[in-house]
């Protein structure tokens, strides 16, 4: 990894992290602009495949930046991209957490928190919808998504069962 690429990763993902409100999936369009359009590090198809791979792995969705970093700088690129994307905002979150501890119990804060809850849940649902659209390459994956939705919503079994089921259906039918 050259010094140029290192700084492009640091500044590019660092900047994205500061405007990212929400989870890793919400910032994908910005990431696409950086790695495909601005720097030409990979094609559209590469981008889509790397994203699918990250989705298939456990961990925070934002770790997809690690795969983009890996593509341009191996393991050092992976670590650089992940740290650029997480460190600045982590310090902010920590500061805010401290502030919140001091303000704990204040009514207006509880009202603000309570008001934000439905937005968070709505955005989780939106992420699911976007993921489902990305996975829907035919009627079989759509059926798997629908079955998985019902399984997780209506039962208390570990979701790992339905993920294993999805992988088996994929191996046999896709």
């Amino acid at each position: 990894m050259t010094a140029t690429v290192f700084w492009q990763l640091v500044l590019g993902f660092g900047a994205i992290s500061l405007v990212s409100v929400g989870g890793g999936i919400a910032v994908l369009p910005e990431m696409h602009r950086l790695v495909v359009e601005v720097h030409g590090w990979m094609t559209d198809a590469d981008f889509a495949r790397r994203f699918a791979l990250a989705q298939a792995a456990p961990g925070p969705n934002v770790l997809v930046v690690g795969l983009f970093g890996w593509h341009v700088g191996g393991i050092a690129g992976m670590l650089t991209a992940v740290l650029a994307m997480t460190l600045p905002t982590s310090l902010m979150a920590f500061g805010f957490s401290r502030l919140r501890a001091r303000l704990a119990g204040k009514t207006w804060l509880r009202i603000a928190e309570r008001g934000l809850v439905p937005i968070a849940v709505g955005l989780i649902a939106a992420s699911g919808l976007i993921l489902a659209r990305g996975a829907a390459s035919g009627w079989i994956p759509v059926a798997v998504t629908a079955g998985s939705t019902l399984f997780v919503w209506r039962t208390d079994y570990s979701p790992l069962w339905i993920l294993a089921g999805g992988a088996i259906v994929g191996a046999l039918l896709l």
Binding site: A52, Q55, A56, I124, A125, S127, G128, L131, A132, G134, A135, A136, S137, I140, P141, V142, V144, T145, A146, G147, S148, T149, L150, F151, V152, P159, I162, L163, G165, G166, A167, I168, V169, G170, A171, L173, L174
Partner: peptide, 11 residues
């Protein structure tokens, strides 16, 4: 592909 479809439903 199958895993991604199931994960979407889980979310």
């Amino acid at each position: 592909a199958g895993l991604a479809a199931a994960a979407a439903g889980m979310v």
